[in-house]
Design a binder for these strands. Sequence first.
RNA 1: GCCGGAGUGGCGGAAUGGCAGACGCAACGGUCUUAAACACCGUAGGGCUAUGCCCGUGCGGGUUCGAGUCCCGCCUCCGGCACCA
Length: 880
Amino acid sequence: MARSYNPEEIETKWQAVWAREKTFYVANPTLQDMQKGKAGGATYILEMFPYPSGSAHMGHVKNYTMGDVIARFRRHQGRLVLHPMGYDAFGLNSENVAIQTGEHPAVFTERAIATINRQLRRLGVAIDWDREVVTCRPEYYKWTQWLFLQFYKKGLAFRKEAPVNWCPSCQTVLANEQVIQGTCERCSTEVDAKKLEQWFFRITDYAERLLEDFNKLENWPERVITMQRNWIGRSTGSDVIFRLAAKGAEHGSSAPATADSAVSAAGGVADPLDPLAGTEITVFTTRPDTLFGATFFVMAPEHPLVEEMVCGTETEEDCRRYIRQAMGASYIERSNAEKEKTGVFTGRYVENPINGALIPIYIADYVMMDYGTGAIMAVPAHDERDFDFALKFNLPVIEVISSPEEFKNPDGSMKEAYVGDGLLVNSSHFNGLPKTEAIRQVTEWLKEQGKADFAVNYKLRDWLLSRQRYWGAPIPIIYCEKCGQVAVPEKDLPILLPDITDYQPKGKSPLAAAEHFMNTTCPTCGGPATRDPDTMDTFVDSSWYFLRYASARRDDVAFEKAAVDYWLPVDQYIGGVEHAILHLMYSRFFCKVLYDLGLVGFEEPFKNLFTQGMIHYKGAKMSKSKGNVVNPDEHVAKYGADSLRSYILFIGPAESDVEWQDKGIEGVYRFINRVWRVSCEAIEAGWLATPAGATQGTLGPLPEEAELTAAEKALLVKTHQTIEKVTADIGERFHFNTALAAIMELNNEIVAARGGDDGGPAATSSGRRVLAEAVETLIRLLEPFTPHMCAELWEMMGRKSIWDAPWPEVDSRFLSLETVEMAVQVNGKVRDRLMISKDAAAADVIAAAKALPGVVKYVEGKTVVKEIVVPGKLVNVVVK
RNA sequence: GCCGGAGUGGCGGAAUGGCAGACGCAACGGUCUUAAACACCGUAGGGCUAUGCCCGUGCGGGUUCGAGUCCCGCCUCCGGCACCA
């Protein structure tokens, strides 16, 4: 009587063994060996670490199981695998809990960590827990602060006053990347624009390298690269210098209506009555070729020159009113491209450097201060937004790129903006040039006169890293009345986060009220000084945790260079696509800075990236608020970790969103039970025992091929085909669902070959040997998915640790049968089937095919025009 | 608006240009059982004048001996960005 499958018992037994024996512990090689490089097959498998907000959810189960399958698979392939885990433990969730309950965020966080840790161990994930990192503990954030100081010394961390995104609900500023369509990434509250002095990382200095180094990545999803590329938003064009005309200058010159006829005006002449006259205002444009079509000029309401410029003009009051209104508008109102254009004439003019024409300056909120220079030349004929504006304010539209008829009215005027290619017209000596050539020549011509230059612009903004919140790493900067802004000396790190009682943010960090924290002495002069009350964005913590794993317990360095250079870059990183920009771009930036500082020897942290899909339930993303959460613990309790792990990967492709089906896991559970039963039977029957004379822990040599019956040969072929498929599915394609399907097929064949429960047909010794081969392979292929059951079966076989067992190898002799079945088509439709030797010559295959009754019927009386043979698969006879 | 991705049975899904629907769920029939559960065996895209034939991978064209797969034009859904000059 075979033992019944009891996952609870088996799984807790093996989890205890793994914990006790530290099975998954991986020591760093000696310094000497590490310095020899990654030669020893060192492989770093990493999943994005969890944010401990309570307990693990199905998304975590999927993420960590996937990583575990790959880690175990690589291990069996003989690699030295690093597979660590940690917790992204600072952050707003715990702090908001603290505000509600008064409980210290550290207490809440440590409890959540303990829960998730227990869950991960209960899932049987092969993690080296000796390398665990927790970002909210001083031994970790000491080094976050230390890294901040390295950035600071390099001028890459700096303070500036700038318009920033403020979330009124979270009571803190946010980075651009944390604003999703004008709302806070965390709480979806609409953000306000506020002008504040804040800390930034100079990520814009790295924009070019962040783009270039995409080519250093081996295998990243194209869409993630595209998202980052769009976010960085590089565009090439020119900076063109316009000069502010003196008040009233426009009356002395011709109107700027026709470009070619314009004459140079008095724009550049200093005017004692108007100190601003002649001021240079630079614009960035991707279309310098359309400069002759610039009929007006627009500045953002926030532009620093605007206030002064409108002073004393007739429209001063209108301008001030408009600016007030524009600044008061919400981000969403402001950025709605659909809304009608608004703006106001400033009463002033600028001189177009290409022809000296004076064109009116408007203030309009469709020009943004945070892109380019906050001022644009407006070319209504060839820009849709400028066209809308010109229409509304009745400004001239001059065609300067020959436009197709459908863009024009019958009288030749522009009906809508034409942004496509064409030849220049109305553009003086540039007439006739094609667009791209004109872009170059116009810029060069102006450059010679010092009025323009080629320029590159990015959408990417510097990373705003300070937060007016409590639960984060304090910024290690001190403000002294005498010495100003002073970096905390490294020997004084960490700056410990003090305990406080009132976590409520009040527009500034709760730390600002903690006097014993705030009041300190200046490390330079010893005089009274105050600390920075802000904490760091949690994305700073997560931008380097993957480095810390390499030498997690070192307390004298953030990470050991030899160790990071040995293990990194990460060979396989796995996580949700929601981090496509935020975490993944910040980490890439950090890595490049650390490379420049000589702290790491590589410029990209993650060589291969896999982004998993989400698990939906009842048609929607699982969430507490929708009440459609499926609890992993319940399924572990009911079916065992092995079943849950397998099912979560079996549902569908790992990279796509999939729907959880309540009955689905039962099917996988049944499958696992069948594997258990068939394996136990084979083991108890002694088929899997090591025969006398064979190497310990092996099945001994296979019988000669000639001794095998057709059925035995078929099972052997199925076994090796399955090895081939599963190896490729796990190792190359991440198709865990089809890997499992293939293993299920093998199991089905074993069940069929073995016969019924009462004895079965395994009558011959060669048959038993082939069955043993199949069962042993089944267990080994399944180990990454169901490690507990496989460990138990392995032990029952009398073998040593399956964790250390090698991955099964394909024997190419057994990848196909001698005789294959081929489909026979006539004109592309299957009409018969043919059993024939796999090595049969094409001519013989065709002859045999044409003799089949189902084929003769369709070929008779027709002319054969073509015959196609796909070896081992199909024949197509084309007739007329 | 721009840039990605996806549309295949009742459901989740499978298929280097080569037999569409592997594998699993649900369903149905049977064996076992006093009975049920479990387990096991079997049936299963649709249609028809059924030993056979026709139709079928969102829609319409095309390339090819052969298209779920490649090309062109649409439709729908999902994701990202969005007055980016």
